[in-house]
Simulated scan of single mutants.
Amino acid sequence: MNIQNVKLVLLGPTQVGKTCILQRVCDGQYVPDTVTTSGVDFRYSTITIKEQTVKLQLWDTAGQERFRAITGPYYRGANGVVLIYDITSKKSLQDLNYWIESVQKNAPPNVEKMIIANKADLQHKRQVDIEEGQNFADSVNAIFYEVSAKTGENLMEAFTNFTQKILFNGIRNDTKKTVPLNVKDKKKKKKEKKEKSGGCC
């Protein structure tokens, strides 16, 4: 069975819920009392997109300033970056400007970007409107989702669609160039058409 590997790096300031998102995506569970990430951690999650098995390698990076210097090397080989802020903290959205600069400096030039607005379950504490988050995402050429790690709202949809976007555009890993899904679909349809017609050439 052909398994496609996709590396995603989770970025953002501390306390926005990066580790909770990681645990929800990988384990399907919400653990509220998580220990603040020190340095970098990573986990795996497997999803299926158009009959293609995809193994996600998710890197959870620390948001504290004292750990930012060691984040750079972990961009190597990344196919996508997920920048996360907290809808109850306007400052957390403003802090993403630092991480965007870090991505531009350290990540592969064609890396895909997704902005995640976490804690959608805390509407009564909202400081950042959806439009503000969407406008920020548009300004950095990223897709945008508002999610809740606590309830799971929109989370798997966000990661599935982001991964599909990466595969659709084609990714390069250490061993081979991935054929975009739309190209695979066209080849499959062409083969089926040829078999129906009985032709071999």
Rank of each mutant, 00 (worst) to 15 (best):
K190L: 14
Y44F: 13
K50S: 03
F144G: 08
F42S: 08
Q123P: 03
Q164P: 03
L22P: 02
R76T: 14
R126H: 11
K18L: 03
T151V: 04
C200Y: 14
A149L: 02
R24H: 11
L8D: 03
F162I: 12
T36G: 12
T160E: 13
A78W: 09
S148W: 05
E192N: 13
D138A: 10
P13W: 03
E132I: 02
I47T: 04
T34L: 07
K105S: 02
A137Y: 01
D86I: 12
I47F: 01
G12R: 00
Y74K: 14
M156D: 15
R172W: 08
D129T: 14
V82S: 00
G17H: 07
K105M: 03
M114C: 12
S38C: 10
Q57K: 14
Y98K: 11
P32R: 04
P109S: 07
K165S: 13
T34K: 06
A142Q: 06
I3L: 03
S89W: 07
T19V: 01
E146G: 06
E51H: 13
K18D: 04
T37A: 08
C201G: 09
Q104K: 15
V35S: 13
Q52V: 07
N2I: 08
E51R: 12
K196W: 06
V9A: 05
P32L: 02
S92L: 05
Y30H: 15
L58W: 08
Y30I: 08
D27C: 12
N141G: 07
I171R: 07
G28A: 07
T178R: 11
G80S: 10
N154M: 10
Q29F: 08
E51L: 09
D121H: 04
K191R: 15
T61P: 09
K176H: 03
V31L: 09
I143C: 14
T178A: 07
K125R: 15
Q57E: 15
Q52W: 05
T37G: 02
E65V: 10
E132F: 00
P180Q: 14
S92H: 09
V111A: 00
K189Q: 15
S89H: 02
I21A: 02
I100D: 14
R126Y: 11
V16P: 01
G63S: 11
S89R: 06
E157A: 07
F42W: 10
F67G: 11
L83I: 04
C20H: 01
E153W: 05
S197I: 10
V147Q: 04
Q104A: 10
K187W: 11
V140Q: 08
T46A: 13
I115S: 00
A117P: 00
E65F: 07
T163I: 02
L155F: 01
L122I: 06
K105Y: 06
T34D: 13
F168I: 13
P109A: 03
C20F: 01
A62E: 06
T34N: 12
I21C: 05
S45A: 14
V147A: 03
S45M: 02
P73G: 06
A107H: 00
W99S: 05
A120P: 07
T88M: 09
T71D: 13
N141D: 11
A69K: 11
V103F: 05
W99C: 05
I3V: 10
V103M: 01
Y85T: 06
Q23M: 13
D86H: 10
T163G: 04
N141S: 12
D138T: 11
R76Q: 14
K105C: 09
R66A: 06
F144I: 09
V111N: 00
I47M: 07
I116D: 01
K91S: 15
V103R: 03
T71G: 12
I49F: 02
G72Y: 09
